[in-house]
Write a protein that binds this DNA or RNA. Structure first.
Length: 525
DNA sequence: ATAGGGTTAG
């Protein structure tokens, strides 16, 4: 590349020789394929402009291809203008490179205008033009417009191909819009298009992510029947999904099967195996796989450690968990928030809140982000040790730091407060969340459940009445919640009593509101 | 020429 450039400069200095546009274009092409030195290319463009070289068809196409690939929009439009001024008709390739360049630089609206020009002109958009527009809409998250283009292809008899469908499926997949991509996948099948293994991957992963592992497995079967080769990623996602749905045996079967078929499990697969075993308490078994990976040169990442630390913590082996945590530093594996949270949780579970809090501080010192999970673990741990004020302080700290509470974090707080008799305080904090846009949807339900579980039916009724009286929820809904909570703790008598009672806001004949009978009165509390 | 998958939490 440098040699080409030196020769170019040398030739430019020779007498009776002037570079033509073609030479510049060749050099731009060289710079483009060899990594794309945008600054050097821009200098060449300036020289072309200074010399006033005239645009021609071949050069214009070459330049558009390069500028398109590099996303040099300004230069793209400069060539485009030059073509117009010199009466050069763009070819289909020119259009498509231009579209792709604009789309890759997120100038989707400009691409839209070019596309419209094509639709009215001599060179009609082909499948590549359509696919490029679909890609643009997918990049900007405009699923509706992308789907419109697919329909348009059908109407205008531009056959959509696997790439049209793949772009759309990919977008729907990243949006977790499972019904849309299942539909698209079926359409592909119906049209008899070749289904790339990547399509199977997406559909299987998508179904697995939704917890629909049997359906994922069915698609996997279909894939094998159609002669499409599976791969490590597909096996890994299936194993994970089966384990997550509580069927680790099926996961292990798939693990054996993939090895039999000659697929080498990698560190992600082993990460899944270790994590799954830890989750069901088979931490020694998980340790064996961990050792196997270590001995066989697999990249040991933080997933292994966080899974094992949390697994050990679950079965009360907190010393071993701590040892692994410290080992990470020695082995040069960066500790992420998952690892910290797992160990903090292990400490909290065995009532070692001092250690947990020390780790919380260490987390900050070592530059690891404290997350909403961290606070949730600590808050419930502190309440368990009756350190209510400290728990509340942490909640405030979390809000002050701008960390958005989750329903689970509020559950930890409200559970602690309710069980220490501070139901009103929990309600007040809940009210303060609304203005910052946080509405833990199950908050009241969780609180009523907690109170019933503790046998404090009177307080549960009071809370239920308070919710209705303040107009926070409709009486029928609160009643259902209360009935379910009573049933859950086995108090069928009260549940029945509530079920057979008329409740809610009655209306008299004139339409004015009658006074509601309180839950508390209904249940004689 | 245009599309590209899998693992970690209360």
């Amino acid at each position: 590349m440098d040699e080409a450039f030196r020769f170019f400069r040398w030739a430019g200095k020779q007498k009776e020789y002037e570079h033509k546009l073609e030479s510049y274009v060749l050099l731009v092409e060289v710079f483009t394929v060899s990594g794309g030195d945008v600054e050097r290319i821009k200098r060449l463009v300036r020289e072309i402009k200074e010399k006033g070289l005239l645009m021609n068809e071949l050069s214009a196409n070459g330049l558009i291809k390069c500028f398109g690939r590099l996303g040099m929009v300004e230069e793209l439009l400069w060539v485009w203008r030059g073509m117009k001024e010199n009466g050069i008709e763009p070819s289909l390739f020119t259009y498509n490179f231009l579209l792709d360049g604009l789309v890759n630089s997120m100038f989707v609206e400009s691409a839209e205008r070019v596309f419209e020009v094509m639709q009215c002109g001599k060179v009609r958009p082909d499948v590549v033009s359509y696919n490029t527009m679909i890609k643009g809409y997918c990049k900007t998250g405009k699923l509706g417009k992308a789907m419109e283009k697919l329909k348009e292809m059908e109407v205008l008899n531009v056959g959509a191909d696997k790439i049209s469908y793949m772009s759309l499926i990919q977008l729907c997949y990243s949006d977790s819009d499972i019904n849309s991509y299942l539909g698209l996948f079926r359409e592909m099948e119906e049209k008899g298009l070749e289904i790339p293994s990547h399509a199977y991957s997406l559909v299987i992963s998508g179904l697995c992510k939704e917890g629909r592992c049997s359906e994922g497995y069915a698609v996997f079967d279909l894939m094998v029947r159609k002669g499409c080769k599976a791969n490590v990623a597909i096996y890994t996602t299936l194993i994970d999904s089966f384990a997550k749905s509580g069927n680790i045996e099926e996961g292990m079967k798939l693990f054996e099967r993939m090895k039999e078929e000659g697929f080498e499990p990698d560190e992600v697969t082993y990460g899944v195996i270790v994590n799954s075993l830890c989750k069901v308490g088979k931490v020694d078994n998980a340790m064996e796989y961990f050792e196997f990976c270590r001995e066989n040169g697999f990249a040991i990442n933080a997933v292994f450690y966080s899974s094992l630390i949390s697994g050990l913590g679950k079965v009360g082996r907190v010393d071993e968990a701590e040892k692994l945590f410290e080992e990470m530093e020695v082995k040069g594996c960066t500790r992420d928030s998952y690892c910290y949270n797992a160990l903090i949780d292990a400490f909290a579970k065995c009532e070692k809140m001092d250690e947990a809090l020390t780790l919380f501080e260490r987390m900050e010192d070592e530059g690891c982000d404290q997350t909403v999970y961290t606070y949730t673990i600590l808050i419930s741990g502190l309440f368990k040790e009756r350190k209510n004020e400290e728990a509340l302080k942490l909640w405030e700290m979390m809000i002050d730091k701008g960390i958005t509470p989750t329903p689970a974090s509020f559950r930890a707080l409200s559970t602690g407060l309710c069980l220490s008799g501070k139901v009103a305080r929990a309600c007040k904090i809940l009210d303060e969340l609304a203005p910052i846009g946080v509405i833990p949807e199950t908050a009241f339900e969780d609180m009523i459940n907690v109170l019933c579980k503790a046998g404090r039916f009177d307080q549960a009724c009071n809370l239920a009445d308070g919710i209705v009286d303040r107009g926070r929820e409709i009486p029928g809904k609160v009643r259902t919640v209360l009935i379910n909570a009573l049933r859950k703790v086995g108090n069928a008598d009260l549940a029945m009593k509530l079920m057979h009672s008329k409740i809610g806001i009655g209306y008299d004949r004139k339409g004015s509101v009658k006074k509601r009978v309180k839950f508390r009165i209904l249940l004689d509390m």
